[in-house]
């Protein structure tokens, strides 16, 4: 299968990391920024790197952006440049355009311009941080559909020592436990104590929950809220 082609426009910390990560996974990556120093730095890590003005339609076209499957616009400092660049890339006929936004207004404008996906990392990280502070027992949370989440949650004390079927997680809360992450002590190759995660995928109803287990569950957000408070 032919590797997908990506363009990353704007190589600040976020864009730079995206470009390098994509390239490290074997993708064809075209990196664009107006800073020569950054282009020099990234040129060894990506397929092609160009110094150019992202609002110059001809220069963007000549760089080959139109041939890319996905374009990621990660211009953070200047909203106007980001919006113009989005417009140019859409006009070039690129279907999948992902834009990093720095404000809700920025997000609304690029969404109206036809961006396929808008991301707001600062806001998303802030939300995640607050969730982590308020709910320390919830280690990870991914929304998989509106209202339904996949959650990594510390097993409530009430369930310790009980088999899954006796916990009522499914019958009372309508939540499915799809895996149990269990910390196992062991001695590593250097003879030191260590811990490793053992994944028990699709646990049976008779599987007992231990102290320190982490449950990977799927269910409605409201049900998970109820369960975490027990």
């Amino acid at each position: 299968m032919k590797n997908k082609q990506f363009a990353v426009i704007g190589l600040g910390t976020f864009g730079y990391s995206v470009a390098v990560e994509l390239a490290s996974k074997g993708m064809q990556v075209l990196a664009i920024d107006n800073d020569e120093e950054i282009i020099d730095k990234i040129s060894g890590s990506v397929t092609q790197a160009f110094v150019l003005d992202a609002t110059d339609e001809k220069a963007v076209k000549d760089a080959g952006v139109a041939d890319c499957d996905t374009v990621i616009i990660a211009i953070g400092g200047n909203i106007e440049t980001s919006i113009l660049s989005t417009l140019i890339v859409k006009d070039l006929g690129v279907n999948n355009v992902i834009v990093k936004c720095t404000s809700k207004w920025h997000l609304k404008v690029v969404a109206k311009l036809g961006a396929s996906r808008v991301i707001y990392p600062e806001f998303e990280m802030a939300q995640k941080l607050v969730d982590g502070i308020i709910n320390p027992n919830i280690l990870e949370q991914i929304e998989i559909s509106k209202g339904y989440n996949l959650v990594e949650i510390v097993a409530p004390q009430k369930y310790w020592g009980k088999p899954l079927k006796d916990t009522g997680i499914r019958s009372e809360y309508d939540i499915n436990v799809i895996a149990i992450k269990r910390r196992q002590p062991f001695i590593n190759d250097e003879g030191q104590n260590d811990i490793k995660d053992e994944m028990i995928v699709n646990p049976s109803a008779d599987r007992e929950i231990n102290q320190n287990d982490i449950l990977i569950v799927i269910g409605h957000q409201k049900s998970i809220e109820k369960m975490k408070n027990i």
Binding site: P136, N137, L139, V154, R183, P185, Q192, N193, D194, I195, Q211, N212, I214
Partner: peptide, 14 residues
């Protein structure tokens, strides 16, 4: 101290 740290980490007391 390291070993107590491991146990605290296992108990998610980060």
């Amino acid at each position: 101290y390291y070993n107590i740290g491991l146990i605290k980490e296992s108990a998610n007391k980060i």
